[in-house]
Design a protein around this nucleic acid. Structure first.
Length: 480
RNA sequence: GGCCCGGUGGUCAAGUGGUUAAGACACAGGCCUUUCACGCCUGCGACACGGGUUCGACUCCCGUCCGGGUCACCA
């Protein structure tokens, strides 16, 4: 099988695009086929190399690799459409010669007027085809006016177009509903519907998995395949990803690009896992899948037809699952950029800072949904200030036994030779025993005195992270 | 508006003529724990509506409604 992902580089990789790429990748890998990356950059006004870069980087970040593409080359290149203009031109000539296509000189205003009239009449909005019958003299006259023609495909009348979509099943269109559409713009650049057919054919693409928004375009492409004498690939149109309000995912629903999720502290494995579950269902009840496992499990038969609403809560949950599955070393590595940016650790962390981060991540691992959350969570572990979060916390310190607990704790801590999570843990245990108080009466006053909060990571870790000096200062600050 | 696709709990979803209609997230309660979190347990909650077909429909057919896509010299 040969599959492809063919984004237009008009912005960062969209989360929906990422899912299309993923499905194509999964099927290619599963069947031992190839994934081709093709850049559809024929929209000169909006395309940029920067976006192409972003898309490639986002795909790599997700772990999606390709076998052929603009950067790695391949036997069917070039893989950027703007570098294939000569190829399209040859086929256009053929189409023109055989009468499948013709020049059209209609201006935008004329077309717009037609469109309005059709709309007003409630008729189908489609091009009238009036330039189809232009005589040579008429053409010459229009040329002389300086009009730059487009090339339209001449749609055969009343033809049934049957598509056997791998996820939709059989879908039937009638060519009557389709007006003669533009295949080459007035600047000589092919339109999407045209270039995509030639490229998929020439690149020997066997299966096309793409978003449902392309389904209505497919009959046009089918006609083109027919005229060009190319075999059609198998299509699989997957449903759209919707926002909370059930409209197509867009900026106002929050983050839409893959990089944004990276920046917000999501792990690529989690994003991939979540995306896979959006529109595809595994056979068993397991929901956590590595890319490798997805390759084994994935199949088009289990891809849903109905659109899916993007559920951030579930992504957060999956992300948390992956965070909990990380080693501490890995977590430190992941958190480092965030901590660095927040100025909590230096550019090149010392071994002491590394130690500190290891303890911090140990304390925080079970409490994070995203890595970015360390920025916020780590605050209570920094500095010597303690602010009581509420009345309840203040009450804990006013407890009759609180002063004794805190004093005894401090004495014991100062006497401790080495502060490690283990030694502190043992210290707290012996403290509870010695004071003959309930755990709550021992742990809560210390916790509140040290952090000002009723909740937080394990106390012994907090103490180990703070170290003797900060503990003493905080105790002092909280007791006044 | 024409055409196309879709409609199972708030969300993701299993289901393919006969099931007590799975499971997950979220939510609620409980357990665990020094707290929160994690984890575990329990609970809440759904086949859009109306007609058929059938001994029997979430499953098949038709209609209605709702949602989405498309009808560009954007992809």
């Amino acid at each position: 099988m040969r599959l492809r992902f063919a984004p237009s580089p008009t912005g960062p990789l969209h989360i929906g695009g990422a899912r299309s790429a993923l499905f194509n990748y999964l099927l290619a890998k599963k069947t031992g086929g190839k994934l081709i990356l093709r850049i559809e950059d024929t929209d000169l006004a909006r395309s940029s190399r920067e976006s192409e870069q972003n898309i490639a980087e986002s795909l790599k970040w997700l772990g999606i690799s390709w076998d052929e593409g603009p950067d790695v080359g391949g036997p069917y290149g070039p893989y950027r459409q703007m570098e294939r203009l000569e190829i399209y031109r040859q086929y256009t000539e053929l189409l023109l010669e055989k009468g499948y296509a013709y020049y059209c000189y209609c201006s935008e205003e004329e077309l717009e007027q037609e469109r309005q009239e059709a709309l007003a009449k409630g008729a189908a909005v489609k091009y009238s085809g009036k330039c189809f019958a232009l005589t040579a003299e008429e053409r010459a006259k229009l040329e002389a006016e300086g009009r730059k023609p487009v090339i339209r495909f001449h749609v055969p009348p009343n033809q049934e177009i049957v598509l056997d979509d791998l996820v939709r099943g059989r879908v039937v269109f009638n060519s009557e509903e389709i007006g003669d559409f533009v295949i080459v713009k007035s600047d000589g650049i092919p339109t999407y519907n045209y270039a995509v057919v030639i490229d998929d054919s020439l690149m020997k693409i066997s299966h096309v998995i793409r978003a449902e928004e392309h389904l209505s375009n497919t009959p046009r492409q089918a006609l083109l395949y027919q005229a060009l004498g190319f075999p059609m690939p198998q299509f699989a149109h997957i449903s759209l990803i919707l926002g909370k309000d059930h409209t197509k995912m867009s900026k106002r629903h929050g983050a839409t690009s893959v990089v944004q999720y990276k920046e917000e502290g999501y792990l690529p494995e989690a994003v991939v896992n979540f995306l896979a579950l959006l529109g595809w269902a595994p056979e068993g009840e397991e929901e956590i899948f590595s890319l490798e496992k997805l390759i084994v499990e994935f199949s088009l038969e289990r891809v849903a037809k109905n659109p899916a609403v993007f559920d951030l809560e579930k992504l957060r949950w999956i992300n948390g699952m992956y965070i909990r599955g990380c080693t501490i070393e890995k977590l430190v590595e992941l958190a480092l950029p965030f901590l660095r940016q927040a100025g909590y650790v230096s550019e090149n962390p010392s071994s002491e800072e590394m130690k500190w981060m290891e303890l911090v991540m140990t304390a925080l691992q079970e409490r994070l949904s995203t890595i970015k959350e360390v920025e916020e969570q780590v605050k209570i572990l920094l500095g010597e200030e303690v602010t009581l979060e509420n009345e309840e916390a203040a009450a804990v310190l006013k407890e009759e036994t609180a002063p004794l607990v805190i004093r005894t704790f401090q004495e014991k801590l100062l006497a401790l030779e080495e502060i490690t999570p283990e030694t502190v843990k043992a210290l707290l245990k012996s403290l509870t025993k010695e004071l003959k108080l309930g755990g709550k009466l021992v742990y809560m006053p210390i916790r509140v005195a040290l952090t000002g909060q009723m909740h937080g990571p394990d106390l012994y870790l907090i103490i180990a992270i703070l170290g003797k000096e900060l503990v003493v200062r905080r105790l002092k600050n909280s007791v006044v």
